[in-house]
Amino acid sequence: MNSLIVSSSPHIYSKESISRIMLDVVLALIPAAVAAVYFFGGRVAIIIAVSVLAAVGTEAVVQKLMKKPVTIRDWSAVVTGILLAFNLPQAVPLWLPIVGSVIAIALVKQAFGGLGHNFMNPALAARAILLAAWPVHMTAWFKAGADAVSTATPLAILKGIEGSLDQLPSLWEIFIGSPWGCIGETSNLALLVGAVYLLYRRVINWRIPFAFIGTVAFLTWLIGPQGLFTGNGIYHIFSGGLILGAFFMATDYSSSPVTPIGQIIMGIGCGILTSIIRIYGGYPEGVSYSILLMNIATPLIDRYTMPRIYGEVKPGV
């Protein structure tokens, strides 16, 4: 009987695991990937595949070099690879997702300690670096099809930077899906299918995405082009990368707060920054920078939003 296992309670565990969570995220991203291929064409599938392979490969190589256990089976590098590809225009040269994945995994994730230790969303940080280094490639929006004309994104049109208002796609078009913007932003419907799955699987909770989207909808409606309460908040919800960012990027575990109130603050903060950039900034889209800025504020938010514990009153009061 010397073989009895003795350990400290609890003696049973839930079936949840890191790899199952990451796999759920991958599954949740598939509808949007399929939609992207449908609207942009087969090249998108190659970009996603290259990005994922580069991310997983970088993770394996870096972990080998650092003499750490190789954890590529946990699916987390796959998630980063897909998300990076989702943040690229469909016309990028194929070396760009490779460079991006190396930056995301080697620099943003592994250099800071690997899974759970990255203080920024790896895919978004890599995107920011790519955008600064290769702005032309990163904003090469082409409407897919035989004529492949250069197009403006709806947000740029809305802001009056490029194009004219009559080029603006309808709300229905941008909801169902249309060949504008980054690869992952194509179909809000497909993204929402994945988002509902993640909520159902309790991989994410409502706090960050709902606070984020609600804040953007409210502020872009409040501060409209023709004065107060004239904005089109609903259109803003489905424009640009808001749905993708709110459900799949701002909810990144390691770079978002762990406290319930902190998560709401994270969402509202992202929403305020996104709205400010969209309304006042020199750049049509603000989702990724707003998330990155709030990522940096996360430790501070956690510190000041510790929950009031059960029984936190002075004894005898």
Binding site: D74, L115, G116, Y253, S254, P257, V258, T259, P260, P307
Partner: peptide, 12 residues
């Protein structure tokens, strides 16, 4: 045990 991914499920 694997590294903490800060999923906050323990907080919930």
């Amino acid at each position: 045990a694997e590294p903490c991914i800060r999923c906050a499920k323990c907080v919930e």
